[in-house]
Design a protein around this nucleic acid. Structure first.
Lengths: 187, 187
DNA sequence: GTCTATATAATGATAGAC
DNA sequence: GTCTATCATTATATAGAC
């Protein structure tokens, strides 16, 4: 892995664990085993490097979610596959955590990949639910856009509850709860 | 308002907007209009002051949630009242945001009030749901603990999605979605 | 491309005068 | 109780040698 690559992946890791505000250029350099001059040669500064890292993490997240949602099975099975995706629960969501960061949200540029990722996710979940309605699997009174947002929110909120508790349990319960509720809409 | 009070409420505001890592003693002093010596006279340091602020925010949150959940109406109406509570959606949850902060989660002491708040909230929501089952309002196959976790997670995740989008819309959709699903369990 | 030197401001305190 | 002085460390770079 070359220096640029190490800088980007190191920044991804540090942003995941400490956020933008909590990640210093020095910490990135140490994690990437790159010198000061090297980092500033390849990137104009912290925010440019962060943009590269955030964009990369966003793309990875979409790819992983898509692989669960485009699998075989009924709509509910595919939503379920998304919910049961392997996750580092106590570490949180590498993209969602950035929505809590004041400097990310304040920057049009840094927030964009974060916002687009969740817009895409809600759309994709809504598509799957709409398919379920279309083929008679799900009740007619289910609103795909609302329920898609609820599913995405349960996952993001599950991370929050789990980290608050210092335990994976709340995440597991929340996911079970929304699946339970969704099954109530199955015909 | 005396100095101690101003220091605590100022820290509450700053923690809400910038988190623990993003809040400096200097920023607190300026916001509270208190001098350096004054702050360090009343509190041993940043973390002691943060503990006071976090505990206060946690207590306020519980009180507000309790007022929605202990109101009149059916179980679903009370859960709904909690979901529709007035919120500063784009500012996020003053307690939940701390669960994303690495230094808060790393500290046994600072994480405790955050964890306890959400433990309490899930318990309280589960009680209301259990009451709904007991009086025949809600279906027997509803798991109160799972659904309570899902409801709490939708709110916390709704904040995340809203901040990511820079719009209140995802929060509103998510809340509508979980209410929609919950109505499916009503008899 | 990478390294070292240098620079300005902020961070998180402590010490002691008043 | 509050103020000012001081301090060591870190944050976030820039400049220029190699």
């Amino acid at each position: 892995m070359d220096t640029v690559e190490r800088l980007i992946t190191s920044t991804q890791e540090l942003l995941w664990d400490r956020g933008y505000v909590g990640t210093s250029p020095k910490a990135i350099q140490q994690h990437a085993q790159a010198g000061q001059g090297s980092m500033y040669h390849h990137f104009a500064g912290k925010s440019e490097l962060a943009l590269a890292a955030i964009s990369r993490s966003a793309a990875e997240l979409r790819e992983e979610a898509e692989s669960a949602l485009s699998g075989a099975g009924t709509a509910v099975e595919r939503i379920s596959a998304y919910l049961d995706r392997e996750r580092e629960i106590l570490r949180g969501c590498r993209v969602g955590r950035l929505a809590q960061d004041p400097d990310v949200v304040a920057s049009e540029e840094l927030r964009r990949p974060v916002g687009e990722t969740f817009d895409w996710l809600r759309d994709r979940l809504a598509q799957v639910l709409a398919e379920g309605k279309a083929n008679g699997e799900l009740a007619e009174d289910l609103d795909p856009v609302d329920v898609a947002a609820a599913v995405a929110a349960v996952v993001q909120g599950g991370y929050v509850l789990a980290r608050a508790a210092g335990s994976e349990e709340p995440f597991t319960h929340a996911v079970a709860g929304v699946r339970d509720l969704l099954l109530g809409k199955q015909l």
